[in-house]
Computed example of a mutant assay.
Amino acid sequence: MADFLTPTERSALMARVRGRDTRPELTLRKELHSLGLRFRVHRKVSAQLTTSFPPAP
């Protein structure tokens, strides 16, 4: 598949792509927090998780 964008246009487009803190992600975190759930965000784990719940004490 040929790229129909110039390298400059492709760079500008890719610069707008967000990997974290997207609107749906922020909405979900806000709702979880309002329900009293506490969690870690962007924790380094083996899977590609953005939100994880720490073990209970």
Results as ranks from 00 to 15, higher is better:
25 E>R: 10
1 M>W: 15
48 Q>D: 14
10 R>H: 08
22 T>M: 03
29 R>T: 08
6 T>N: 04
11 S>R: 15
37 L>K: 09
34 S>V: 01
32 L>K: 02
36 G>Q: 01
3 D>R: 11
25 E>Y: 08
39 F>Q: 06
50 T>R: 00
12 A>K: 13
19 G>C: 05
7 P>C: 04
22 T>C: 04
49 L>Q: 12
37 L>N: 08
29 R>V: 00
48 Q>P: 01
24 P>Q: 02
13 L>I: 06
6 T>P: 04
28 L>N: 03
40 R>N: 08
7 P>S: 04
29 R>K: 12
18 R>V: 09
23 R>P: 03
9 E>F: 08
25 E>M: 10
42 H>C: 07
30 K>W: 05
32 L>Q: 03
32 L>C: 05
4 F>M: 06
51 T>E: 02
34 S>P: 03
28 L>C: 10
3 D>C: 11
49 L>G: 08
7 P>Q: 03
33 H>L: 09
14 M>I: 09
18 R>H: 11
27 T>Y: 07
17 V>R: 14
4 F>C: 02
55 P>Y: 09
15 A>S: 15
20 R>P: 00
26 L>N: 07
12 A>N: 07
30 K>L: 08
55 P>D: 08
15 A>Q: 15
36 G>V: 04
48 Q>A: 15
1 M>C: 14
38 R>T: 15
24 P>I: 01
2 A>W: 07
43 R>M: 00
16 R>V: 02
7 P>L: 04
32 L>S: 01
28 L>F: 14
12 A>I: 10
56 A>T: 13
13 L>M: 06
23 R>L: 13
9 E>G: 05
26 L>G: 00
27 T>Q: 07
39 F>N: 07
36 G>P: 02
37 L>C: 13
41 V>L: 06
31 E>D: 11
34 S>I: 00
35 L>N: 03
43 R>S: 11
8 T>S: 05
14 M>R: 11
48 Q>R: 14
44 K>H: 11
18 R>M: 09
19 G>V: 05
46 S>C: 03
50 T>A: 01
20 R>W: 12
50 T>P: 00
32 L>I: 06
19 G>H: 14
54 P>S: 06
19 G>Q: 10
26 L>T: 12
7 P>E: 08
28 L>W: 04
47 A>F: 09
16 R>E: 14
50 T>Y: 05
29 R>E: 04
44 K>C: 06
13 L>G: 00
30 K>N: 10
23 R>K: 15
55 P>H: 04
11 S>H: 10
19 G>F: 12
33 H>P: 02
33 H>E: 12
4 F>S: 05
16 R>W: 00
48 Q>K: 13
29 R>G: 01
51 T>L: 10
4 F>D: 05
3 D>K: 07
34 S>G: 06
56 A>M: 05
15 A>F: 14
24 P>M: 01
54 P>A: 03
29 R>W: 04
17 V>L: 12
4 F>Y: 13
20 R>A: 13
51 T>R: 01
8 T>H: 08
16 R>I: 00
53 F>H: 06
13 L>Q: 10
37 L>A: 13
18 R>T: 08
10 R>Q: 12
30 K>Q: 11
4 F>R: 05
49 L>S: 14
35 L>G: 03
9 E>Y: 05
7 P>Y: 08
49 L>P: 04
43 R>V: 03
39 F>Y: 15
40 R>H: 10
28 L>Q: 06
1 M>D: 15
42 H>K: 13
